[in-house]
């Protein structure tokens, strides 16, 4: 944007000015108008995707950069294992294949005793946009086993919930079972396992 004299200011900075009717540089009145010449120059600039280190070759204009980041197929996920920087690292975690997109089928998983184990629920053949879930069994003294379930999503936003989990834990020998129903947190695991 620019004032009648020609002093330029970007629209986000202009929006934070205490007085939008007067130029920030010369106090000229009349407000600011779009500056087509500067817009053309800025549109000609191309900025590399921040995920270039992960293989993204996209270069976008400034105003397209945020949209691209939100859908970049090269956005990374992280590994909940301390000290490991690669989600795809081979930890020997057992995995179970889900045949239906988004789940919706019942999977019976054995509960390990006395060890922390992470199990991967995935779709055969992978595929862009197919959800990946981690089920972690953690021994908690006095409580038994804690079982968080998370959806691994490189584009997750804080507080986001896209899936619901119905979890039944049972010990037939004790004629006992417990039902939990909760929304599954989506995360890119950048802060470790929730």
């Amino acid at each position: 944007m620019q004032c009648a004299v020609g002093h330029a200011i970007c629209s986000s900075c202009h929006g934070s000015l205490p007085s939008k009717d007067r130029c920030h540089a010369c106090s000229a009145g009349g407000g600011s108008n779009r500056c087509n010449a500067l817009e053309k120059i800025l549109e000609s600039f191309r900025v590399p995707c921040p995920n270039a280190a992960f293989g993204c070759a996209a270069a976008t204009s400034y105003h397209e950069a945020e949209n691209h980041r939100g859908s970049c197929p090269h956005a990374p996920c992280f590994c909940p294992e301390p000290g490991c920087e690669a989600f795809a690292g081979d930890h020997g975690w057992p995995s179970t294949e889900m045949t239906m997109y988004g789940g919706g089928e019942r999977l019976t998983l054995p509960v390990p005793e006395g060890t922390t184990t992470t199990r991967v629920l995935h779709h055969g053949g992978g595929g862009e946009g197919r959800p990946l879930f981690l089920v972690r069994f953690t021994t908690a003294p006095q409580f038994g086993t804690v079982v968080p379930v998370v959806c691994v999503d490189p584009h997750a936003v804080p507080g986001e919930r896209k899936f619901r989990c119905h979890l039944v834990s049972g010990f037939p020998a004790m004629a006992w079972h417990q039902v939990s129903d909760f929304q599954v947190r989506s995360t890119n695991l950048s802060g470790g396992m929730p």
Binding site: G102, G103, G104, T108, L109, P110, F163, H166, L167
Partner: peptide, 19 residues
């Protein structure tokens, strides 16, 4: 012991309410 897990996608209406 064992657990049975069933995961389903949350469906929402146009206002974002769970349905």
């Amino acid at each position: 012991g064992s657990i049975t897990v069933s995961i389903a996608k949350i469906m929402r209406d146009t206002r974002g309410n769970e349905i």
